[in-house]
Design a protein around this nucleic acid. Structure first.
Lengths: 132, 132
DNA sequence: TATAGGGGTTCCGGTCACTGGAAGCTCAAG
DNA sequence: CTTGAGCTTCCAGTGACCGGAACCCCTATA
């Protein structure tokens, strides 16, 4: 199948698939006319990458996961190590964003948001806030 | 004061300050020998940007906030609008990450993580998982 | 006085993961 | 015969910097 069909089936834009090939993440056969030609197994791999990316794995991590995916003899512990590390990153990110949300939420709450110029948000950003 | 001192006082690396100048976010006077020369007010603005960036505002949003910061006659509603919008973005991001965390957490939980090759994480990423 | 160091300056290139656009190809339908 | 869709390659740009090279300037020390 050609790249457009593979793109639809893997939920990845054609540009992205070509990019993945360019950086050596995935390869593709070529048809007689020079077009890329994808097998069902290729599409599986594309979907695998798409899912992994959407779960927050970097392209480099996808490269690792893909080799673990292909290697049917590796230990599940190898996979779990990568996923656990990523889980920690996600937790840290959530904590950070929650902290941000709290600070910014307080500032927004305190701002009356009318035509007057005085603004606790600006004061907070400039370090002039009294509480905290 | 020179860029190193301003950097220390604003918690921004010198490279970043030069970059901000390059993109026209902030300007700086020059001393006789060509070095950048910062006033206390300049440092206030740098800190303002540093805080805003660390709260998740993009550089373009910082540009807006900075002009609202400088304009002592603007309505606080203008500021609140930007901050509220950003708050929504943060909430969406938290929700997305929480969803991710849940999915990946389930996969990690189900993986026994030993020397055997079968791995629910890989199965989940490849779309072969049964539950969800 | 020579020199070593620790600032500063500019400019160039790289990062990550794409995305947009131009120019040119093939192929099927009208 | 033309039109359009879809494919190809290549080049450049995104955001927000970071690293490094090459060079300048000032001060302290041998």
């Amino acid at each position: 199948m050609n790249i457009g069909t593979a793109a639809r089936q893997s939920c990845l834009p054609p540009k992205t698939i070509r990019y993945y090939e360019e950086i050596g993440l995935l390869t593709a056969d070529r048809a007689a006319n020079g077009n890329r030609d994808y097998s069902n197994e290729d599409v599986h791999r594309l979907r695998f990458v798409q899912r992994s990316r959407s779960l927050g794995f970097s392209v480099e991590e996808c490269r690792q996961l893909l080799s673990l995916y292909t290697d049917r003899d590796r230990a599940s512990a190898d996979v779990k190590a990568i996923a656990t590390e990523k889980l920690g990153e996600i937790d840290r990110k959530i904590a950070e964003l929650t902290g941000l949300r709290e600070i910014l939420g307080h500032l927004v709450e305190k701002c009356h948001g009318d035509l007057r110029p005085d603004c606790p948000i600006i004061d907070g950003l400039s370090g002039r806030s009294r509480d905290h």
